[in-house]
Design a protein around this nucleic acid. Structure first.
Length: 483
RNA sequence: GGCGGCGUACCCAAGUGGCUAAGGGGGAGGUCUGCAAAACCUUUAUGCAGCGGUUCAAAUCCGCUCGCCGCCUCCA
């Protein structure tokens, strides 16, 4: 399989450091505020990558960290009048809450910066000992000029950056590009004892410490949002490789941004949508589908219209799921073949290879989803052809299994159609209970039997006005929510 | 200023050298239906921002131009 590597700027064949095993580290969040949809994108795509690698037979160890000590957390604690660790806990809990709802699995290890202070101090001391870092009045800085490969990930020349550095010049630094490994703490700030006095870790060092501890000196995949390429990941590389003398991560994987009116969604622009806000209007599965229907490296424009399209696509799947179920519960005592049989047979034979080829090509979930809908169309066409008998049942069952298997890999299509329609009914605040709808369907059935079309149509109209659509089929009438 | 990305139909979105440019939504027409809905069929890009070039062959590679965006400061 191929994975795009930010380091080389190309898709590369994926060859893990140790055959058959994959070590993977994704930068998580700083727990100081609500999660927005951009955090969801990152979490979902790395979760899908982990799952797919496992499906391919790799033994995956996946680490995703929490930054639970940081200036932003300290500031937030002041604002809210609670302690910094209460802030961290509050937003960590919230993170789990929304990610669980979105169907994002837990990583194998979810380390926190504050649980790795000892490891961090060891690395900082090691970097000082090796001459890559220096201490100034309780702060320790990494000396960028000492690491000749600095800039190799983000493709920058340190000379150019110095010229345009907009960073506040800290006189204590030897060079404006130098970054903090350890920060001395002021009175009343959280701190840990260290050889340089009380302080706390700098932002980048925790990831070096935690990946080293849980994955070793060299591992396979390191990822995060594209905004982490510089300086965060660049600095991680510098620290880690200077410290161990070994290559750090082999493949650097970065997801693209979510945009609003073409601009990056961000806190400073105030154009962000929290996951909780979106979940009030759309189901978790819709959000997942929306995020996976574009390749992970491309920007995605966020809007209600886009989410509605995703909702419609998922509804198409569940509509087909109902048709499949209806088909399988029909009488199949007579064998009847139809013209579309060979087309479906062909598709069933090829589907999984196509799906895997898409995912093998740098996790092309958008293409993979395209294949799913192609299968859906062919299945519908086949059912329209009116086949029956053992062979047709086998073909439809195989098709359904393929839809489930591919859906599982993306963690979509996991509900029953009834769950899906009820979720839609609730999320849109349609006032009718399911019992009421069923009673109305029965009432309408009697009208239709008596060929009282006026009465029958008025019932259908009443429900439709509230967003409930009735579908008449051979073996009865079913309801669904109008999208 | 340095570095990078993007521009594919009415909308979203795959495709990065060679079959008729996936898939979804929308529009138009049709089949089915008591009427609908759903499903299916036909149709909707001789063309992939524009202009040159390389090649037997380019949306796909190269150059230039235009437009949009990102990183260089915390950021998924």
């Amino acid at each position: 399989m191929k994975i795009y590597n930010t380091m080389s700027g190309k898709k590369e064949d994926f060859i893990p450091v140790a055959p058959g095993a994959v070590g993977m580290y994704a930068c998580g969040i700083t727990v100081y505020d609500h999660c927005h949809i951009g955090h969801a994108r990152s979490a979902i795509i790395f979760d899908v990558m982990r799952g797919y690698l496992r499906y391919k037979g790799f033994e995956v160890k996946y680490i995703r960290n929490f930054t639970d000590i940081d200036d932003k957390i300290i500031n937030r604690a002041r604002q809210e009048g609670i302690s910094w660790n209460e802030v961290a806990k509050k937003y960590t809990d919230e993170y789990y809450n929304v990610m669980d709802t979105l169907g994002v699995g837990r990583a194998d290890v979810e380390p926190k910066a504050t649980e790795h202070i000892k490891e961090i101090i060891d690395i900082v001391q090691g970097l000082i000992d090796k001459g890559y870092a220096y201490e100034m009045q309780g702060d320790v800085y990494f000396e960028v000029g000492k690491f000749s490969d600095y800039g190799k990930l983000s493709n920058r020349d340190p000379e150019d950056m110095m010229a345009g550095a907009r960073v506040d010049i800290d006189e204590r630094k030897k060079n404006p590009m130098d970054f903090a490994l350890w920060k001395s703490s002021k009175e009343g700030e959280p701190s840990w004892d260290s050889p340089w006095g009380p302080g706390r870790p700098g932002w980048h060092i925790e990831c070096s410490a935690m990946s080293l501890k849980h994955l070793g000196e060299s591992f396979d995949i390191h990822g995060g949002g594209a905004d982490l390429i510089f300086p965060h990941h660049e600095n991680e590389i510098a620290q880690s490789e200077a410290y161990t003398g070994k290559p750090f991560a082999k493949y650097w994987v970065h997801n693209g941004f979510i945009t609003v009116d073409k601009e990056k969604m961000s806190k400073s622009l105030g154009n962000f949508f929290t996951i909780q806000d979106i979940l009030a209007k759309f189901d978790a599965e819709v959000i997942r589908f929306f995020l996976l229907s574009t390749h992970y490296r491309s920007p995605i424009e966020f809007s209600d219209e886009q989410l509605k399209e995703a909702e419609l696509s998922i509804d198409r799947y569940y509509t087909t799921a109902v048709r499949i179920r209806d088909f399988l519960t029909r009488d199949h005592s007579r064998d009847r073949t139809c013209a579309e049989e060979s087309v479906l047979e062909d598709m069933v034979g090829k589907f999984l290879d196509r799906f895997k080829a898409a995912m093998d090509d740098d996790f092309n979930t958008a293409l993979a989803i395209g294949h799913i809908f192609e299968l859906i169309r062919i299945v519908n066409k086949y059912i329209d052809g009116g086949p029956s008998g053992k062979k047709s049942v086998g073909l439809i069952k195989s098709s359904y299994d393929l839809l489930r298997e591919s859906g599982n890999l993306l963690n979509i299509f996991w509900r029953t159609p009834e769950q899906w329609y009820n979720i839609l009914k609730d999320i849109r605040n349609i006032g009718f209970s399911e019992e009421y709808i069923v009673a109305k369907i029965e009432e309408r059935r009697k009208s239709r039997e008596a060929k009282d079309w006026a009465a029958s149509d008025s019932i259908r109209k009443e429900l439709e006005e509230k967003g409930i659509i009735l579908e008449d089929k051979k073996d009865g009438t079913s309801w669904k929510v109008k999208i």
